[in-house]
Design a binder for these strands. Structure first.
Length: 471
RNA sequence: GGCGGGGUAGCCAAGUGGUAAGGUCGCGGUCUGCAAAACCGCUAUUCGCGGGUUCGAUUCCCGCCCCCGCCUCCA
């Protein structure tokens, strides 16, 4: 099946055709964090979705070049720096660092570039683009000295969000201090300096100030990926106004179609409501690690629901993630043991040449992860049954391991490297082994209890005791 | 009010015009000294509600209800 994605622009599932099919190179731009505080797991749901997208495209043989911006100047970062009484760059540095720590914990592939809005190169490019827009009559400087985009001059404005501009109403979320604009929907390209901004300012043809939020993405995406990009992602809350504005700015400057496919991820909910800093109902990665869960488990919990469906975060869901991953790891351990065994030459690895491709076919269909995981778990049950019945030979087992290796380039869910068993646990297990030889069950159970309190679980298999860390 | 997304078993969730994947939880069984893991069986006559089309709809059409989000700087 050909790859297809739901394009927000058309609101339809569309077959994926990159700009340059022959080269199999794809440019993806993803909106990154605003570094005014630690990102929460709702933000990371979007980044995990983008990670899944990239990895699946790579599995399908595309060479992905992905860029993720870092917004390190805006109202919130400036306010934060002012309150902390430190320079802006110092204030944002800590959250940049935290962000990179968290994506590593969650095994999110690093983008090929993480451009920052305050980088002089991009500031210059933003000024250049704003200049071009002004000269074309698509932007104007208002009496408040800020420069705004004139949306009435860009007929396509509103097409991505499917908004009728005459219907735009203010929700009252933003203060009406913008009387200088020609149209309520005009958005800032360049924000004139005011004293709240302290020493955060850059010179421009329109006086000192700083870039508006939207222009940074237009500048950095076109700088790093060219005038036209294949895929642009973000959370649904970015559709309007952010991505709408990006289209207007970029196409206003280049005159070319900016993005071929717009993919947007639904929100992470908590208690049925959007997880958001402003609501105070959010968890960070360290919050969840602090409850004893691993990055791996968080990754699974955030990945297992289709990206366009809202996902409700619950501790029950975390537990389920843990159990599901344990099932996978258990299966892998069995396969490894089996593949290493010298098996009788009877029944040759039947599956070796015909491993199922349904996993990636499911992902081809707008990243249908639930169906893909369904196939994985069905395969697990079937191979486990075969192993129970002693019908899976070493060759087949290693074929399944190779299969896993392939799909795991997308999932990246395998347990962290085996933890070494501590010596005291080894000793207790030894004691238990001799107790069991004497059929001293009472002593055996006591020792199992002790091992358990040390964080390890002991199981009796037909090959003797097996120790696994208790999570 | 406008524009989207979602409403399938206790919970999470896939899916198709022909009689409901998978995960998790619970129960029963096999295995085990007992467990654990694994496997087997059971757990939605039913897919928000009401109409319509059809031999047949959860799946198509119409209307309605509920939840969540966006409507100017929130992934």
């Amino acid at each position: 099946m050909a790859l297809r994605f739901f394009n927000t622009y058309s609101r339809e599932l569309e077959q994926f055709e990159p700009r340059d099919p022959a080269a199999r190179k794809i440019g993806i731009y993803t909106c990154g964090p605003t570094v005014y505080s630690r990102a929460h797991i709702g933000n990371f749901r979007a980044y995990i979705f983008e990670d899944l997208l990239q990895r699946h495209l790579e599995l399908r043989g595309y060479k992905v070049h992905r860029v993720m911006n870092i917004t390190d100047v805006d109202d919130k970062t400036i306010r934060g720096a002012r309150e902390a009484e430190v320079p802006l760059a110092k204030f944002t540095a800590q959250f940049k660092e935290a962000f990179f720590e968290d994506i590593e914990t969650l095994r999110i592939k690093r983008a090929d570039g993480f451009p920052a809005a305050t980088d002089q190169r991009y500031i210059e490019r933003m000024i250049e683009m704003i200049g071009a827009l002004v000269s074309r009559g698509l932007a104007y400087q208002a009496d408040d000295k800020s420069v705004y985009f004139r949306i009435n001059k860009f007929p396509d404005y509103g097409k991505l969000a499917h908004f009728d501009l005459t219907q735009l109403q203010s929700t009252g979320r933003v203060k009406h201090d913008e009387y200088d604009k020609e149209h309520i929907g005009d958005f800032a390209l360049w924000k004139a300096w005011d004293e709240e901004d302290a020493n955060v300012k850059w010179d421009s043809p329109w006086g000192p100030g700083r870039p508006g939020w939207h222009i940074e993405c237009s500048a950095m995406s076109t700088a790093l990926l060219g005038d036209q990009i294949d895929i642009h992602c973000g959370g649904v809350d970015n559709i309007f106004p952010h991505h709408e504005a990006e289209i207007a700015q970029s196409e206003g400057v280049t005159g070319k179609k900016f993005v071929r496919y717009w993919l947007h991820c639904a929100h992470l909910l908590v208690d049925g409501q959007k997880m958001a800093k402003s609501l105070g109902n959010f968890y960070t990665v360290p919050d969840i690690l602090g409850k004893g869960y691993t990055g791996n488990e968080i990754r699974y919990a955030l990945m297992r629901v289709h990206y366009r469906a809202p996902l409700n975060f619950t501790w029950e869901g975390m537990k389920e993630a843990r159990e599901s991953l344990a099932r996978i790891d258990e299966w892998l351990a069995r396969l490894r043991e089996r593949s290493a065994s010298v098996s009788p030459a009877k029944n040759k690895g039947k599956q070796a040449g015909s491993m199922p491709y349904t996993f990636e076919e499911a992902l081809d269909d707008d990243l249908n992860i639930s169906a893909a995981l369904g196939f994985l778990f069905e395969s697990i049950r079937e191979t486990n049954r075969a192993m129970d019945e002693n019908k899976l030979d070493a060759a087949s087992a290693s074929a399944w391991l190779d299969w896993w290796k392939r799909i795991n380039t997308v999932l990246d869910l395998e347990m962290e490297a085996e933890v070494a068993v501590p010596p005291e646990v080894v000793q207790l297990a030894k004691d238990r082994k001799s107790a069991r030889r004497e059929k001293n069950w009472k002593r055996s159970d006591e020792l199992r209890g002790k091992i358990s309190t040390l964080g390890w679980e002991v199981r009796d298999t037909k090959d003797g005791q097996k120790l696994t860390p208790r999570t």
